[in-house]
Design a protein around this nucleic acid. Structure first.
Length: 189
DNA sequence: TAAAAGATCCGCT
DNA sequence: GCGGATCTTTTAA
């Protein structure tokens, strides 16, 4: 049961992207998969914003793929990359602004057996959910979930233990080739 | 219509 | 630790 945890509401997502990225650290991502609860603590995120960030999908304007980023906050933006991987983002700010926070890493809390089954028997436990595409696979998230409402009953966020300011490491983002100097990546250390 | 690049992971050495 | 796999989306001609 999840009555001990508090589900995050709409106002949580409607904040400035950088602030939301930091606020997401330590929160729990809950996903209902075939009636089971899969929960992961968010330990690594990256911020993407249409203004001054050439690496953001929204930088060059609205397209069919990234339209969710421009929509209202509190939605899931899932996209396919490198022909074999999915990545998930949390849309931030208000409708009309192309901004989102990429979930890069999780720490498995509940439903670990199921995650292991989804990822494969030979995956090491530490590699279950550390990485954007791994987190998606462990949560059984695919393009079908692009645009999912985080206030719905399939995927949502719950209030977790907020890490201390001192435990948060801030630095440049990874895996991109533009605007990589922006210190928009946060990790709980 | 075609070509190139991309917010990556996995297996092998 | 390094290189390959593999396909969607975008942008240009």
């Amino acid at each position: 049961m999840w009555k001990l945890s508090k589900k995050l509401g709409a106002s949580f997502y409607q904040q400035e992207t950088v602030a939301l990225a930091k606020a997401l650290l330590g929160q729990k991502l809950v996903r209902i998969y075939e009636g089971k609860r899969l929960v992961g603590r968010i330990v690594e995120v990256e911020a993407y914003h249409q203004d001054g960030d050439e690496a953001a999908h929204s930088f060059r304007g609205k397209t069919p793929r990234n339209q969710v980023m421009f929509g209202p906050p509190g939605y899931l933006y899932v996209y396919f990359i490198y022909g074999m991987h999915y990545c998930m983002n949390v849309v931030s700010e208000e409708e009309g602004v192309g901004a989102a926070v990429l979930i890069r890493g999780l720490e498995p809390l509940e439903g670990i057996e199921t995650m292991q089954a989804l990822r494969g028997p030979k995956i090491k436990r530490r590699d279950l959910t550390t990485g954007p595409a791994r987190a998606c696979k462990a949560m059984a998230i695919n393009r079908h979930y692009d645009g999912t409402d985080l206030l719905g009953d399939t995927i949502w966020l719950e209030e977790g233990d907020s890490p201390l300011e001192a435990e948060i490491t801030c630095g440049p983002r990874i895996g991109i080739s533009k605007s990589k100097d922006l210190p928009w990546r946060w990790v709980v250390g």
